[in-house]
Structures are given as C-alpha cells and as structure tokens.
Simulated scan of single mutants.
Amino acid sequence: MGASHNARVPTAPSSDNADDADETLMQRFAAGDMGAFDTLYGRHELAVWRFVYRSVKVQAVADDLLQDVWFAVARSAGGYQATARFRTWLFTLAHNRLVDHLRTARQHLSLDANDDTERSLADTLAADSGFGPVRQLQSREQAAALIAAVEQLPFEQREAFLLQAEGDLSVQEIAQATGVTFETAKSRLRYARASLRQHLQEFA
C-alpha cells in the first residue's frame, strides 16, 4: 500500500471519484469498488502517516502502522456506517493501532526527521489560525524547534495536538477518536498549545 520514502507523496486520487465525499467512497468500496479505495488512500495517506510518524518517531515503524491502518480500513469496510466523518473514523483506527503498538513496544524511539518532514508539519500548523507563533515559522531552525517541542509533549497531549494539526479533527472528533470526554480532549489541546507556545516564544 505504498512504498517507504522520506518525503511522502500521496497517491493521486482517481479522477472518476475526485468529487465524491469520503463517506460515499467508503460505501462504494464496501460494495466492491477498488477505485473508491484508491481515492480514499490518495486523499488521506499522508495525513495518517504524519500522525503516526510524529507519535512513534521512527519512519519504518510509521510505515508499518500506516499499512496496518489501511488493512483495518479494508477489513472493516463491510460493517462501515457513515455515522461520523470518514476522517474521524479513519483516525480512530489509527489511534487504536498506535495504542496497541505502544502497549507492546515499550521502548525509547528516536526522531530521525529530514527537512521535508519537518517542513511538512510546520506548513500544516501554519494554516492553523489558532496557533499564532507557528504561522511565523520560516527557517529550518524554527521548524526543528517546533518538532522538538512537539516531541516533548506528554503522549496524550501530543496525540490530541497531532490529531488536530495533521488529522484536521475537531475537539469533539478528537474526543471520539481517543475515547475521552470533550472536556478532556479540550484540556489536552489547551495544555499542548500552552507548552508549545512557551517553547517557541523566541520565534513569536
């Protein structure tokens, strides 16, 4: 489901499905339309990979988890119900797979990011109008400082932050994906952002 590479490039969606909603595509895939799956994969592969990569911090592990997530999508297609955004459902699968991995692999993992992956997260966060200092990131040094600050967040805060920054999930969707209350998800985001602002004060 996609080869490992440093600066990941999403698969091009099928032109036949380009304008269809994610939920419609998932239902079409469940009915046997493989082109619909290819379009979903092309739309969301990169965001899911960034989310798991920023959580485990090792590219090979992130690649394996990405594959596991999309296998889970395929396995679950028959029972899929469009009761929430497809993206929320997808990142719930990613969260569950990540938790399983961390539960069975209690080991220290080091970050080995290159310029492209550093800039990818910085660029993603730059579009988030609720995180002012990040919009001013302009150099590799600043991007590296952001990555380091995200790395230092407690897991729950980092996950909530990345689900919003990379997954484009709302607070309610983060709560749903991680199995916590709205207030808990909101609190984790608030603490994460406060910590990141403190670490990035020199770039404000």
Score class of each variant (00 low, 15 high):
Ala77Val: 01
Met34Ser: 14
Ala94Pro: 04
Val61Asp: 14
Leu66Ile: 06
Thr178Tyr: 06
Pro154Val: 10
Gln67Lys: 15
Val171Phe: 02
Ala192Met: 07
Gln136Cys: 11
Glu166His: 04
Arg43His: 06
Leu162Lys: 04
Pro133Tyr: 09
Gln81Lys: 15
Arg8Ala: 10
Lys186Thr: 02
Ala74Ile: 13
Gln176Thr: 13
Gln201Met: 11
Arg197Ser: 10
Ser129Glu: 14
Ala126Ser: 11
Val69Ala: 02
Glu141Gly: 00
Gln157Met: 03
Leu93Ala: 01
Ala143Gln: 01
Ser14Gln: 12
Gln142Phe: 09
Ala113Ser: 06
Pro10Trp: 09
Asp22Met: 08
Gly42Glu: 08
Ala192Arg: 05
Phe71Leu: 14
Arg87Ala: 15
Asp20Val: 05
Ala105Cys: 12
Lys57Met: 08
Ala30Cys: 08
Ala30Arg: 08
Val48Ala: 03
Val9Asn: 08
Ser120Glu: 13
Asp22Gly: 08
Gln67Glu: 13
Glu23Gly: 04
Asp63Asn: 11
Met34Ala: 11
Gly42Met: 03
Asp116Arg: 09
Arg135Ile: 11
Pro133Cys: 06
Pro10Gln: 13
Arg103Trp: 14
Ala31Pro: 01
Gln164Ser: 12
Arg50Pro: 01
Gln157Arg: 03
Phe161Gln: 04
His95Ser: 03
Ala185His: 03
Thr11Asp: 13
Ala177Gln: 02
Ser187Thr: 11
Gly132Trp: 08
Met34Phe: 10
Leu90His: 04
Arg190Lys: 13
Phe37Ser: 05
Thr24Gln: 12
Arg50Lys: 12
Gly35Val: 01
Ala127Phe: 15
Arg106Trp: 08
Ala3Gly: 10
Ala194Lys: 15
Ala113Gly: 00
Arg50Met: 07
Arg188Cys: 05
Arg97Gln: 11
Phe203Ala: 04
Phe29Ala: 05
Val150Asn: 00
Val134Lys: 07
Asn114His: 09
Ala165Arg: 01
Phe51Lys: 03
Glu45Gly: 07
Ser15Met: 11
Asp64Tyr: 09
Gly179Leu: 14
Glu156Asp: 07
Phe161Thr: 00
Val61His: 10
